[in-house]
Simulated assay, not measured.
Amino acid sequence: MSCLQTIADYGLRSVGVGERLLPKADITLCQQFTLIGSGLIWNVYFGILALFFGFLFANALALAKSSRYAIARKPAEWFIFVFRGSPLFIQFFLAYEALVLLPRNGIEIFGLTAQISWLSKAWAGALIVLFLNTAAYSAEIFYGALRSIPKGDLEAADAYGISGWSRFARIQWPTMLRLAWPSYTNEAIFLFHATTLVFFSGFPAFRQEADALYYASYFVDKTFNPFIPYPIVAFYFILLTLTLIWVFGAVNRRLNRHLPSNERSKLKVRPQIIR
C-alpha cells in the first residue's frame, strides 16, 4: 500500500471517514504519521471550541470580578479560585464521575424528556471541562489587565463625556485586550497542549475515533517502540504551537497598530510545564 493510499484510507478516520480497522501488523511510518495526524483533528476541535467559548466567558468573569457588587464579584472569585486551584486532570475525573451519575433515560422538563447521556462522551464532557478551566485562567489574565488600564485613559474618557457601556466598549475592553494578549497567547498554547489529557480522562471515545495520543498509544502497544509515535505527536504539536504563535501574533500587531513601534508589546511565549 502506497503512502498516498494510506492517507486516503486513514486521513479522516478519527471523524469516522475511511477504513474502520486499524493496522495490526507491518505498521509503516506513513501509517503512524497519518493516523496520529488524523487524531489531531480532535485536539484541534477541543482547543478551538474551548478557546472560543472560554474567551467569551472569561470576559464576563473578569467584569464580574471587578464589579463593586458582591453578588456578582464573589461567585466569579470562587469560580476562578476553584478551577485555578485544582489540577485539570482531577477536574476531568470529577466531571466524568458526576456526568455518568445523571439518569440515562434523560431528565423530564415540563413533560418533555431531555436526553443527557451525550454529556458523558468525550466530545461534549471533556470539552465542557476544558472550556471552564481555560475560562478561569483567562479571566484572571483579563482581570489583571483590566486593573492595569492607565487612569489617564479613563480620565480622558470622562472629560469627553464617554461613560457606561460606550466607555467600556471603546476604551476599556480594547485596552484590556491589548495589555492581556501576550499572556493570553500563552494560555491558548497551554490549552491546546492540555487537550492531550482527554486521552487519560474517563471520557470514552466513540468507535475508536479519538485524539492523537490515542493512536500514538495504540502504535506503542503494537510495535513496543515509544520512540516513534510519541515524537510524532510532539512534532504535530510543535507545528500547532507555531501556527498559534503566528495567528495570535497577527492579532497582537492589530491590537497595537496605533502605537509607535518602540511601545508595542511583543509576544513572549512561555509555555507552562504543569498547571
Rank of each mutant, 00 (worst) to 15 (best):
R84K: 03
L240P: 01
L146T: 10
I232Q: 06
L49I: 12
S201E: 01
T241G: 14
Y96P: 02
F131Y: 14
T113F: 05
W42M: 13
I274H: 13
L259F: 13
W118D: 08
Y96R: 07
W118S: 05
Y184A: 08
K74D: 06
P174R: 03
F46H: 02
L119H: 02
Y218Q: 06
F237R: 02
T223R: 04
D221H: 03
W246G: 01
F227W: 10
P103H: 02
Y236S: 04
A159I: 09
S265I: 15
T196D: 06
N133Y: 14
I149D: 13
V220G: 00
L240D: 01
G18M: 05
L12R: 11
Q115K: 12
P231A: 12
K151H: 07
V82M: 00
F200M: 04
K65T: 14
L146F: 12
I80V: 15
I116E: 06
P204A: 00
S67Y: 13
S14K: 01
F224K: 06
F131I: 00
A98H: 03
K266A: 10
A70Q: 13
P150C: 12
F199W: 11
A98Q: 01
E263H: 14
G39T: 13
F110E: 05
A64R: 08
A124N: 03
V82G: 05
T6M: 00
M1W: 02
